[in-house]
């Protein structure tokens, strides 16, 4: 119970803060007025702050769960969705779009981001297939493909028009600025089934740390399961990237935080809670400092890592 209580208790006040605090401060009563149809509160809370809050919670949950999947499939505590090429692919695609003089931008950036992420993840899966995949091969091919997309990004950074590069960098920093209900509802329709499916696979995700022979001996269809997990991870992390740009670190740290207290059975939902909590906190700070949330996620995460390191007693 502790495991659920901690992140949930942290989320509630943060959510209240996120709704009521801003250029025009609102008392909790005014937030409630939004629900009863007050027009001013409706604009401020209903169409600006509430969708941003929803986006932060959803994207954070997606990132955390995608991280938990990556760490399980790759059998590596340092793995994060970026290793599946998600961030590199999305970043490269978006950068191409931004520095291209005639290409449309605006609402196409999320589409390009998701497409780039999906293509990179698909390429990694396909290239590591050799009568089946394995954790180590996925990791190594992931490194190789990420190096290629990284080279593309580096090339554009070095030679693109400097103001376009800066715009691309601000997208790549990751931000929830400008979230609206349309995009949130698309994300909701997309991410919730994937999150639910991942929860149903909790048992199998926990088993991934066992060796291959034992797993198959237990009746697990290993290749099918790995493929499905990578697909889910791509859907979740890809959707998060499309919504908010690549936000690093939450996918790495949320599963570790959840593991401190959660029973293996509940690891996925609790990871989602921690991810949501971390990104919400980062976004509140981002609004205060007028910076992208992606930049602040590591700042928020650092104290938790300190705590994690203290708890880490065995190797």
């Amino acid at each position: 119970m502790m495991a659920v209580a901690l992140p949930a208790l942290l989320i509630l006040p943060l959510a209240a803060l996120s709704l009521s605090w801003g250029d025009a401060g609102l008392a909790p009563g005014d937030v409630a007025a939004w629900l009863s149809g007050d027009p001013v509160a409706a604009v401020l809370v209903g169409s600006l702050r509430a969708p941003r809050l929803a986006a932060a919670l959803l994207v954070g949950a997606c990132l955390g769960v995608a991280g938990a999947i990556t760490q399980a499939v790759m059998r590596n505590p340092l793995a994060e969705p970026g290793l599946l090429g998600i961030n590199g692919g999305a970043g490269f695609a978006v950068m191409l779009l931004i520095v291209h003089p005639t290409a449309p931008t605006g609402q196409w950036l999320p589409v390009a981001g998701f497409a780039g992420a999906a293509v990179a993840a698909g390429a990694i899966y396909a290239l590591s297939w050799n009568g089946g995949t394995s954790s180590i091969r996925l990791i190594l091919i992931g490194i190789g493909v990420s190096a290629l997309t990284g080279a593309g990004i580096a090339f554009i950074t070095a030679f693109g028009e400097v103001s376009a590069v800066q715009r691309a960098m601000s997208w790549m920093a990751g931000s929830l600025y400008g979230s609206d209900w349309t995009r949130v509802s698309v994300l909701l329709a997309w991410a919730v089934p994937a999150l639910a499916a991942t929860c149903l696979l909790s048992r199998e995700l926990g088993l991934m740390a066992f060796d291959d022979d034992t797993l198959r001996g237990l009746g697990l269809r290993l290749q099918l399961m790995r493929g499905m997990m990578i697909l889910l991870c791509t859907l979740l992390a890809g959707a998060a990237v499309a919504m908010a740009g690549p936000i690093a670190f939450i996918g790495l740290i949320a599963p570790h935080l959840a593991r401190l207290s959660a029973k293996p059975r509940y690891l996925i939902p609790i990871t989602a809670l921690y991810g949501a909590m971390l990104l919400l906190a980062a976004d509140i700070m981002a609004r205060a400092l007028m910076l992208p949330a992606g930049i602040l996620a590591p700042l928020i995460g650092a104290p938790f890592v300190g705590f994690l390191l203290r708890k880490q007693t065995h190797e």
């Binding site: 740390a209 022979d213 034992t214 009746g219």
Partner: peptide
């Protein structure tokens, strides 16, 4: 189905 009939203990299992 196979796993319901056969169980295997590998030489170096890992968890």
């Amino acid at each position: 189905r196979l796993a319901q009939y056969l169980s295997l203990l590998p030489q170096t299992p890992h968890a």
